[in-house]
Simulated assay, not measured.
Amino acid sequence: MTRGIYIVANDRVLDNAITLLNSIRLYDKEVPIFLIPFNDDYQNVANTLSGLHNVQVFPNVEFVDTFTKRIGEIFPRDFLALPNKMRKLVVWFGPLDEFIYIDTDIIVFEKIADNLDKLSEVDFFCCDYHHKSEGLRNIFSPFVREQHIFSEEQLQDVFNSGFWASRKGVITEQQMEDSLRECSMHKEYFDFSQGVTDQPILNYLVLKHIAKRCNLVRLPGGETGSWAGSRHFQEKDYVLYDQGKKLKYLHWAGTPIKPGGSYWKLWEHYRYLHEERLPLLQRLFRR
């Protein structure tokens, strides 16, 4: 059985991708990591991450391209803001038997692949407080609750699409095709008001097809928060803590990564973890 990590990236997010991989490899030198190209402009990020951290390109890029084309055929042109974000859904058909998907605007503070042990009990897990802080916002419209598309218990399992895990084959290609078609006929189910793309559709897929799922923050003992918009985390030795408990990861979802922004110096530390520190103006010019 092969376990590992998937990311989606192109050359535009090179700095973020390096930062994420620097943090992952700090704790885990061996875990397989695959890059799913966001579009055709990925050679620089692929070569850089391969050289630095032995990241491999998803072995069937043709399948990814075909999947993207299929998305364009299934969904009306004005349905999805950034259709290529849907490429992360190919993780269920890739080389890894068990996997964690991680957005590139994240850094981790532990050997993150060890969390895959939870898949001995469930077929999917996430680790965030979206259900508590955001409710259905950026996922489903009130219509879904009003029309009982999902039960109240199911709706408690909504999640942010930046960090989650599952296993190969839990969703089949036919189930994926059928569900995407269902989604394309019911735009009224979803909340795209703030420009999200994949998150509503991914939530629909998981709630519909994966009964054995959990959110790690809802287990006894729980987990810390993870959103970079939360300013109360304490830093020690370039690791964040929430009331003395170490964060699993930090996610800048919807929060700009920039000088003066949330946890900028921490991001900068991991970005240049293996490089000589550059003068600030030179670093800014590079970006």
Rank of each mutant, 00 (worst) to 15 (best):
S166A: 08
F163V: 07
T172C: 07
C214Q: 10
F163M: 07
D198K: 04
E173I: 13
L207Q: 09
F190N: 03
K208L: 06
D191Q: 08
S166E: 02
C183A: 15
E188Q: 07
G221E: 04
F190L: 01
D198G: 02
E182H: 05
S179A: 15
K187L: 03
L219N: 14
L205C: 05
E173Q: 15
E173H: 10
K187E: 06
L205N: 09
P220G: 13
R181E: 15
F190V: 00
Y189L: 05
G195C: 06
K187S: 00
D178R: 08
R213Y: 09
S166Y: 03
R181V: 13
E177S: 13
C183W: 03
Q175E: 15
K187P: 01
M185N: 11
V196I: 11
M185Q: 14
K212I: 10
F190R: 01
G162Q: 03
I171C: 08
V170G: 06
K168P: 03
S179Y: 10
R167Y: 00
W164G: 04
P200G: 12
K168E: 14
F163W: 09
Q175N: 13
S161Q: 02
G169Q: 11
Q194Y: 12
N203Q: 09
K212E: 15
K168R: 13
E188F: 06
D191R: 06
M176Q: 02
C214I: 11
V206S: 04
D191N: 08
L207G: 05
C183R: 06
K212G: 12
K208M: 05
Q175K: 09
H209S: 11
P200A: 10
V217A: 14
H209C: 09
G221R: 04
L202A: 13
Q174M: 06
I201Q: 02
M176E: 01
K212H: 14
V196Q: 03
L180A: 11
G221I: 08
W164C: 08
L202C: 07
L207Y: 03
R181W: 13
